[in-house]
Each structure stands twice: as structure tokens, then as C-alpha cells.
């Protein structure tokens, strides 16, 4: 208890210092900045208005679709890799390990380019379904799968060994035990790190531009870049920054609530 109070105390002190520093910097910026130019370049309401409604109906929507799709496919890949990593079959373990190390080690950008341009060159006739968008989602799923595989494996290993033993001694098979005893418990442990992966993935969708895009398949960053080069104005950056926060902040809040609710069973 005493330890807890001390931690809360020092946290509060840290927070106070952080606020003071922030206020000082903001005050300096406010005092010396050229507000006229900042306003017209970054906070230009006319420019912002030009981005609507496509900002939401195309760009934000695409960002979300790419993220959710890559997250779902990535999760399935990750679950397979994690289960292979934990299996008793050495070749499966080796494959999963190689997969994770390879795609965690490469920059996501490189994976995307290799997939979108390398595969059609290396294997003429092989086409990734869904064209450029398909290639981009496949690439992101592969990368996300590598990261999440480790998260899932960690979650599964954090479930006490006695859980597997109790279920097996009741006659449940290894698969049944995994599906209804181990993975549901592992999932609770995994929620915070998986949220993290999701937020990272939202930002990684901005890499999709390298595989090429059409006006209809642009996500937020590409959309803003096109506007900026057309209009020679930086306001789109500010606008999409706000949109990103509007997506990520409620998400992290929602997950915290979910965690609290799931925590009750513990």
C-alpha cells in the first residue's frame, strides 16, 4: 500500500513537471511564432473544407478498411504461427520462427514492395487477388502476423500450466483445451498488446502508397499528400492528424473499458 502511494506520488510529480514544460514551450511558440503564416498554411479553413466529403467517404474509410482487414488476416496468420511455435513438431516450430524473425526484421515498406513488384516478376502469371489493394493488404497482414504471433505466443505461455493439466485430466483433447480453456484466457492477457498492434497498423497503412493507388483507393496520408502538392498548402496534414487521433483515442479508451469488464472474471 505504502509502495503504491509512493508510486502515485512520484507519478503525479512527473505529470506536473511534464505539464509545466509543455506550457512553457507552448508559451514560447505562441509568443514568437508568425501566426499569420501558420494560420494560412496549417489551419486554413477553406483548404480543410475542400477535403470534405472525400476525406471521410474515401480516405478515412480506406484507412479503416485496410487496417481492419490486415488486422483480421494478420491475426489468423499470427494464431497459426503461435500454435506452430508451441507445437511438438520441430519443422513447424522452425517454420514459425523463421517467419516471425524474417518479417519482423524487414521494414514493412520492403515487404510491401517485394510482394507487389517482386512476385509478379519472379512468378509471371501469379496474381495476388484484389490488385494493388489486395497486394497491400496481403503485405500488411504478413507483417502484422509476424508481430502478433509473438504477442499471442506470450499470452498463451502466460496461462498457468495447471490449466492445461486440469483440462487434459478431464479427458479434453489438446485442441479442445487450447480452444476453450487456454486461448480465451490468453486473449485477456493479449488485449493491451493487441490494441497496440492495431494502432501501429493504422499508421502502417500510410505505407500503402508505394504499391500505387487510384483516387478511389487512397488512404489518409496519400490523400493529404495529393492535396498538399495540388494546393501548395499544409492544412491537409493538420486535418488528417486530427482524423487519426479521432480514430485512435476512442479506440484505446474502448479497450480500457473492455479490459475492466473482462477483468471481473479473474
Amino acid at each position: 500500500m505504502a509502495l503504491n502511494e509512493r508510486r502515485v506520488g512520484s507519478l503525479t510529480r512527473g505529470t506536473v513537471i511534464a505539464w509545466v514544460v509543455t506550457i512553457v514551450i507552448v508559451a514560447l511558440v505562441v509568443a514568437f511564432a508568425d501566426w499569420e503564416r501558420i494560420g494560412s498554411n496549417f489551419f486554413n479553413v477553406d483548404e480543410a473544407r475542400r477535403m470534405l466529403p472525400q476525406l471521410l467517404t474515401v480516405a478515412a474509410k480506406n484507412t479503416l478498411v485496410y487496417t481492419v482487414a490486415s488486422f483480421c488476416f494478420g491475426f489468423v496468420i499470427a494464431l497459426c504461427m503461435a500454435l506452430m511455435r508451441l507445437s511438438n513438431f520441430p519443422p513447424a516450430r522452425a517454420f514459425a520462427l523463421a517467419y516471425v524473425e524474417l518479417f519482423r526484421g524487414l521494414p514493412a515498406l520492403v515487404t510491401l514492395i517485394l510482394l507487389a513488384f517482386g512476385i509478379p516478376i519472379a512468378f509471371p502469371g501469379v496474381r495476388i487477388p484484389g490488385g494493388q489493394v489486395g497486394a497491400a493488404i496481403t503485405g500488411l497482414s504478413i507483417v502484422a502476423g509476424a508481430y502478433m504471433a509473438e504477442t499471442i505466443r506470450g499470452g498463451i505461455e502466460a496461462v498457468p500450466r495447471g490449466q492445461m493439466e486440469a483440462a487434459r485430466s478431464l479427458g479434453m483433447s489438446r485442441g479442445q483445451t487450447m480452444a476453450s480453456i487456454i486461448i480465451p484466457q490468453a486473449f485477456r492477457i493479449m488485449i493491451p498488446p493487441l490494441t497496440n498492434e492495431f494502432v501501429l497498423l493504422i499508421k502502417d497503412t500510410s505505407l500503402i502508397y508505394v504499391v500505387g493507388s487510384t483516387p478511389a483507393t487512397r488512404e489518409l496520408v496519400k490523400f493529404a499528400r495529393d492535396f498538399m502538392s495540388d494546393r501548395r498548402n499544409a492544412t491537409p496534414l493538420t486535418v488528417i492528424a486530427i482524423v487519426y487521433l479521432l480514430i485512435t483515442l476512442p479506440l484505446t479508451y474502448l479497450v480500457r473499458r473492455l479490459e475492466e469488464r473482462l477483468g471481473k472474471g479473474r
Binding site: 490449466q163 478431464l170 479427458g171 484466457q185 472474471g265
Partner: peptide, 28 residues
């Protein structure tokens, strides 16, 4: 698995399934 249903086992640490209700622990 069939054999194990004929042999009950009780552990020092209970090893109940914490994410399931008591009833569900018994029915699953």
C-alpha cells in the same frame, strides 16, 4: 482421453478455469 475420464484428478492448486463460472467449469 477416454481413459482419463475414468480417472479423476485433484490438484494442490485447484486449477479451476478462472474465466468460466463454477457451473461452466463442471459442464464444459
Amino acid at each position: 482421453d477416454q481413459m482419463r475420464t475414468r480417472i479423476g484428478m485433484v490438484f494442490q492448486q485447484f486449477n479451476l478455469f478462472p474465466h468460466l463460472t463454477v457451473l461452466r467449469n463442471l459442464t464444459i
